[in-house]
Amino acid sequence: MGATAQKITKKPNPAKPSLELINDVQQFLYREARLQDAQAYRDWLTMLTDDIHYWMPTREQRYRSNPMEPDITHAAHYNDNYADLETRIRRTETGTCWSEDPATRSAHVVTNIEVELTDSPNEYRVYSLIAVYRNMNEDEEHTLYGHREDILRNVNGELKLARRKIIIDQNIFLSKSLNVYL
């Protein structure tokens, strides 16, 4: 159940991506960030493949001598497929989602974008850093940083997000409920 996210240690295809591909990927990620800020979640869903795996594992503070790689059988903040994400979005559309009314304000900033070719001609591995500024209620401010490792797939000439692994730089999630997508 649910696909395994690609390991970060996987060797990249040594061939260089074209400038055009890099540009397309950047535009894709910026568009995604804009749709998130606008809470245009239905439009965001169209940017995902049907077999999306959207994963943000729980982190644990451990000594260097006792490392533990995140695993999809372990706890996760997000461990979602398309139906999970669609259900979350449907909840915010019911008109009875009190915790999202008034709305959360957010700014998604994408940077450090790196594109790698893979063994599959239609799939690209994309690394990026996402910073999300979140402002809620009267005066609550939270800033989240996530290191993302994505697989983008070319589906009939259109880029779609097929895998996303987000490693958040917090051991304890330092604020209440996570109500944004990174």
């Binding site: 159940m1 649910g2 943000m56 999809i72 059988t73 372990h74 706890a75 996760a76 903040h77 997000y78 461990n79 979602d80 999970d84 259900t87 979350r88 909840r91 989602c97 009190w98 915790s99 209620n137 999630f173 209440k176 409920s177 996570l178 109500n179």
Partner: peptide, 23 residues
């Protein structure tokens, strides 16, 4: 696996029901 995914979706940090309660 289903159990821990449904827990994450409902009462995890990003849970659909957890975020209602937190506020």
């Amino acid at each position: 696996q289903m159990m821990h995914r449904s827990n994450a979706a409902t009462f995890g940090t990003a849970g659909m029901l957890e975020s209602d309660d937190g506020e």
